[in-house]
């Protein structure tokens, strides 16, 4: 028997099989991960548009019902205070994000540009503050706030949020300022600008993307927050979206179509912002943390 050039030796077959198997495994993993990631969202939405009569059926229909309705969404606004929860949350989130960015940027600029004793230490302190379980701050703050009459007010809640948002904003923004060459500011000061003038003419315009990202990040953290809200807020008038949504779950028969409709509405802004920011968040949360 002669060796024809076409003959396939085991040496070339085995790697090919491995490669094909590898691809198949990879494809299966991708499908699995995507389904795991997407299905709960899909289920949330499908439930929200299902007629009430079909919700408590077993086995459940996996596909959207033929009689899909958007009526739960309308009922939400009529029968619940979803509108005011959204407004409350938006107010708290915008307010805290704004002040977190303002105070955070001020500190970040100094930490990024000045050399002083305790600079390293203050960065570590900033990092530590975002590592404590929130309940450790929430409990004592609850005691203090109750004495100051700050409980059950959105202002008090925002103040509490600033406790952990300002340090986070400072760390994220410091990473951004660090990326702007000092020489630009030096050139500006030699060209005749004061430090404050340089800050407004050079540094801030160049860090706009960073400021925007940090603002949005703080926004969704406030939007998502539950523990502080649960402890500090009592009156339904002052509920944020988290509280409003959670209030459904205690009821004897949960109106799942409404819950899922509300959940869908609440998820949308957070999810959009989160996905837009994901790359930057990873950077900020790790290396940006204490890099000097």
């Amino acid at each position: 028997m002669t060796d024809s050039p076409r003959s396939i030796s085991p040496d070339t077959v085995l790697p090919r099989i491995f490669k094909a198997a590898g691809r198949l495994t990879a494809a299966a993993t991708i499908v699995f991960l995507c389904s795991v990631g997407v299905f709960p969202f899909y289920w949330m939405f499908v439930t929200s548009i299902r007629p009430q009569t079909e919700i408590f059926e077993f086995p459940p229909q996996i596909l959207p019902s033929a009689d899909s309705v958007f009526e739960p969404y309308l009922r939400l606004f009529d029968e619940t205070d979803l509108g005011s929860w959204l407004l409350n949350s938006a107010g708290v989130s915008v307010g805290t994000a704004f002040f977190a960015c303002l105070f955070g940027a001020m500190a970040a600029y100094i930490l990024s540009r000045f050399r002083f004793r305790g600079r390293e230490a203050s960065q570590v302190v900033l990092l530590m503050t975002q590592m404590f379980p929130a309940i450790l701050l929430a409990l004592p703050m609850f005691v203090v706030f109750s004495r100051l009459g700050l409980l059950d007010s959105l202002f008090g809640l925002s103040l509490a949020y600033l406790a952990f948002l300002v340090p986070v904003a400072a760390l994220l923004l410091k990473a951004f300022f660090d990326a702007i060459p000092v020489e630009l500011e030096e050139a500006s000061m030699i060209d005749g600008a004061s430090r404050i003038g340089t800050l407004f003419r050079i540094t801030l315009p160049l860090s706009l993307p960073g400021l925007a990202s940090t603002f949005l990040f703080c926004f969704i953290i406030s939007w998502d927050e539950f523990l502080f809200a649960r402890m500090f807020i009592r009156q339904p008038d002052n509920w944020t979206v988290s509280l409003g949504l959670a209030s459904f779950s205690g009821e004897f028969v949960t109106p799942w179509d409404q819950v899922m409709a509300a959940a869908t509405i609440i998820t949308l802004p957070a999810a959009v912002i989160f996905l837009a920011l994901q790359r930057y968040l990873v950077r900020g949360l790790t290396s940006g943390g204490v890099k000097g």
Binding site: P181, E183, L184, E186, A187, I190, A193
Partner: peptide
């Protein structure tokens, strides 16, 4: 005297042109 009042001009190694 602060840099802006010294009336000097400087060219930096990386040029430090304002990117925006």
């Amino acid at each position: 005297i602060s840099p802006r009042h010294r009336d000097v001009a400087m060219v930096f190694q990386n040029y430090a042109l304002y990117p925006h």
